[in-house]
């Protein structure tokens, strides 16, 4: 989990939601929430703290946010390995 958050540092992020991975050459689209998470992840390698930061910004339960973030990180793990 931690490694994958560290790996997000290399990603080039655009305001539009376009994401480019210069290591693999792959590109991606993310939605607004995905972009927020990637931005936070580039400065934050602790998932608990990342969830805390999202809780401050978004109106949802920590259970819901945690579940969605984990799902997102799993997706990311598949893409950035």
């Amino acid at each position: 989990m931690k490694n994958i958050l560290l790996a997000t540092k290399r990603l080039a992020l655009s305001e539009s939601g376009f994401v480019f991975d210069p290591v693999s050459g792959q590109s991606f689209s993310v939605n607004d929430t995905g972009l927020v998470i990637l931005r936070l992840a580039q400065h934050q390698d602790d998932i608990e703290q990342l969830t805390e930061q999202l809780l401050e910004q978004f109106d949802a339960s920590s259970v819901e946010i945690k579940r969605d973030v984990q799902d997102f990180i799993h997706r990311l793990q598949g893409f950035l390995k």
Binding site: A12, S14, E15, S16, G17, F18, F20, S27, S29
Partner: peptide
């Protein structure tokens, strides 16, 4: 340009691009 076509469906857009 690739970002523009992917995200906006058009080339030669200037905002939001790398």
């Amino acid at each position: 340009d690739f970002e523009n076509i992917t995200v906006w469906g058009e080339t030669l857009r200037t905002e939001g691009a790398f």
